[in-house]
């Protein structure tokens, strides 16, 4: 089982959204008949989770929004869990040592965890480049035409936040934070919360054009890095992404390139 490390930029904006905003795009029964459902991952919160005004409880569960399958409700859970499960570092939040299965002394302080959470909340979001270039504009239109934006929702606006810089900000992450059936080809046989083995959270696309630069010049796309190019990643979309994938395949070579140019501008 392999996972690529998550991109961590702009997370504060995603964390500031309300559950109600996320639910607006959920369509579990596909009532609009567009082939896209989109469901939240309902997570049993850890003991240390403190609901904010924008969280909603669903029989004691809360909507996850971070992680490959949206298994973390907030950035504190995401951070404490990442320290513990990804790096084997215990804290008072997640005290169980994954190597020995014993509760051991916290190896990282609460203060450090909270410092990292604040850092993640306030790390700037990626900024799109070449927005006025005609191929980028045309590529963005194609992105919309072939319905990529049904899941990779471009635009969101935050409500009021305890951090003024996060309040009432319009931003462009290209995600709906919901789970989607991505087909058998991407089924990893693993579940998290209410996420099925073939369900994945729509990953934000912002920063996509800069990711190769921060990864030694190579791309590692999809949940486990199996796609080495943007085109490969698009063609690996199954399930709810099949229609958009097929539409991409039917594009002219010129239009494909424009779409890819747009994605590289993010």
């Amino acid at each position: 089982m392999k996972f690529t490390p998550p991109a961590v930029t702009g997370l504060g904006l995603l964390a500031a959204l309300t559950d109600a905003q996320i639910l607006e795009n959920s369509d579990p029964e596909d009532i609009d008949g567009d082939g896209i459902s989109g469901v939240p991952n309902y997570i049993t919160p850890p003991d240390y989770f403190q609901p904010q005004w924008f969280h909603q409880s669903f029989s004691g569960k809360f909507i996850g929004r971070f992680g490959k399958k949206a298994a973390s409700i907030d950035l504190l859970q995401q951070t404490a869990t990442a320290y513990n499960q990804d790096m084997g570092v215990t804290s008072t939040f997640e005290p169980l040592d994954v190597a020995t299965d014993l509760t051991i002394d916290p190896e990282v302080s609460d203060q450090t965890i909270r410092d990292v959470v604040f850092y993640l909340r306030t790390l700037k979001a990626p900024i799109q480049r070449d927005r006025d270039v005609s191929d980028v504009i045309h590529g963005q239109q194609i992105f919309s035409d072939i319905k990529c934006g049904s899941c990779h929702i471009p635009t969101w606006t935050t409500p009021e936040s305890d951090i003024e810089a996060l309040s009432n900000k319009t931003f462009y992450p290209y995600t709906d934070l919901l789970l989607h059936d991505m087909g058998a080809g991407l089924d990893d046989g693993a579940t998290e919360g209410s996420a099925e083995t073939y369900e994945w959270r729509t990953p934000p696309l912002w920063g996509l054009g800069l990711s190769a630069d921060s990864q030694g010049g190579e791309l590692f796309l999809m949940h486990d890095g199996r796609a080495k190019t943007l085109e490969e990643a698009i063609l690996m979309h199954g399930g709810e992404g099949s229609t958009s994938r097929d539409s991409f395949e039917q594009l002219s070579e010129t239009d494909k390139q424009k779409l890819l140019t747009f994605l590289k501008s993010l």
Partner: peptide, 12 residues
């Protein structure tokens, strides 16, 4: 600035 994936957001 738009080629960097690091740094604080504006307005802090």
């Amino acid at each position: 600035e738009n080629e960097l994936l690091d740094g604080p957001m504006e307005g802090l």
